[in-house]
Design a protein around this nucleic acid. Structure first.
Lengths: 210, 210
DNA sequence: TGTTCTATAACATATTTATGCGGTTGCTGA
DNA sequence: TCAGCAACCGCATAAATATGTTATAGAACA
C-alpha cells in the first residue's frame, strides 16, 4: 500500500486527487493540506511514501516546502505538480531534490503510474519537462570554452597549479628542474592571456580546462 | 511513417531491431550500420527522423558519432542505446545533445513508444537513467559547501583575489592599506585551511563561494 | 634541408606573496 | 563594563613568483 500526502491549495483539485487516489487499489491518501506551513511536522507524523506537492501555493510555496523538508528528510519521494512547464521552477525543484515533476493535466491513469514509479526510485517526468531538463543539462555543460592549445605537458602543469602545488613541488612531482617549470608556466600564461598563478587557476575553473 | 537509421555493431541485435521495427506499423528502418565512420554522409543521404545509436561500438563510438553529427545536424532525434546505465556515458550523451537514453533490455513495445516520444519532441529515458540525470543535476547545483564564516570584508577580498587582483590592486580598490589586505588574507587562509592565493581561488570555485 | 614546435634547462632580477610580530578603534553582547 | 571580534594599520623578512634572455635536443613537417 502506497501512502501519500497531498499539498494543494485549490480545494476542488485537492478533493479530486484524494478521491481519485483513494479509489484506486494499492494507494491511500493519509491527509491533504492546503499549504506547507507545517510540512515537517506533518510528514513526521504521517510518514508517507510519496508526497504530491503543488508548486503555486500561497504562503510557503511548493519549492520552499521542498527545500525545508529536504533539510530533515531525504527519503520520502516528492512529486512536484504544476500547471506550466516553467523553466525556472523545474530547475529549482530538481536542484532541491524533487523526485519527479509532472503537469496537472496528466491523465489519472498516468498519474498513478507516475506515483508508483517515484516510489520505486524512478524519476517520472512529463515528456515536455524531461526535454527541458535535458536541454538545461546540455546548455550548462556544453560550452567548454575556447581551446587554448596547451601542450600535454602544459596541461599537466596547469593541473598541478590548480591543485595548489608550488613551482618546487611541481618540479619534484614531474622530475624536471624548477626552471623548466617556469618555462612551462610562462608559456601557459601567454596562451591563457593571464599573468599570475591565481588568474590561471581561475581561468582553468571558468573554462573547465580541469 | 517514422523513418529510422540504426547504428549497432552487434549483428544479431542490429538485425533484431531492424526486423522488430520494420514489422511494426508506422515505422521503417531505412538502413542499419555497424559503425559511425560515415555517419554524416549517411544521415544526409537518408534523412531519417530518428536514429538509434549504440554507445559501445568499435572505432568511432556512439558518443563520438553523436558529437560529430550534432556539429552539422541538430534536427534529427537521437536515441542512445546502452547496456549499462553508466554515469559517465549518460552525462556525455546528454551534454552532447542526445534526445533520449534507453537501456537495451527495454521491451519491444516500450521501445516503439520511446521512438514515438522522441520524434514528437519528448525525451524518453529509462527510469534508472532519469533518476541518474536528476541526481547529477541536483548534485551539481546543491552542495554549496561548508560555510567558512568569512566576514563581509573577507568575502570581498576573496572575490577580488578570484578576479586576479594583486594585494596592491585590492588595497587601492578597497581604499585600505596593503597591510590591511595582508591581514584579511591571512585570516581568509586560516578559515579556508589553505596557504596560498591560488589554493584560496581554487577553493572558492570548488565550494562555490564566489 | 631548414623551419617550427615542444621540452628541457640556466641565470638574473624585480615584484609579489606568506608569515611573523606588534598595535588602535569601534561595535556588540553577556 | 569587559571580552571578543572585525576592521584597520605598520614593520620585517623569507619564500615564491613573474619576467627577461638564452640555449640545446628531438620530433614533425614541408
Amino acid at each position: 500500500m502506497t501512502k501519500l500526502l497531498i499539498y494543494e491549495d485549490n480545494p476542488q483539485l485537492r478533493e479530486g486527487l484524494t478521491m481519485l487516489i483513494n479509489g484506486s487499489d494499492g494507494f491511500e491518501v493519509l491527509a491533504a493540506f492546503k499549504n506547507c506551513n507545517n510540512i515537517i511536522e506533518e510528514v513526521n507524523a504521517w510518514n508517507p511514501d510519496v508526497i504530491l506537492m503543488d508548486i503555486d501555493m500561497p504562503g510557503i510555496n511548493g519549492i520552499e516546502g521542498l527545500k525545508q523538508l529536504r533539510q530533515v528528510n531525504t527519503d520520502v519521494k516528492i512529486l512536484m505538480l504544476t500547471v506550466f512547464d516553467d523553466n525556472k521552477n523545474v530547475f529549482q525543484a530538481i536542484s532541491n531534490g524533487a523526485n519527479g515533476y509532472i503537469l496537472k493535466k496528466t491523465p489519472p491513469a498516468r498519474l498513478l503510474e507516475y506515483i508508483t514509479e517515484a516510489q520505486s526510485g524512478g524519476a517520472p517526468m512529463t515528456a515536455s519537462i524531461a526535454t527541458q531538463v535535458l536541454k538545461m543539462f546540455s546548455s550548462m555543460n556544453n560550452e567548454k570554452g575556447e581551446d587554448y592549445h596547451l601542450s600535454d605537458r602544459e596541461k599537466q602543469v596547469l593541473q598541478l597549479l590548480v591543485e595548489g602545488y608550488s613551482y618546487k613541488m611541481i618540479a619534484s612531482e614531474m622530475f624536471i628542474a624548477i626552471d623548466t617549470v617556469r618555462s612551462h608556466i610562462k608559456k601557459i600564461y601567454e596562451k591563457l592571456h593571464v599573468n599570475s598563478k591565481s588568474e590561471a587557476v581561475a581561468k582553468a575553473f571558468k573554462d573547465k580546462l580541469v
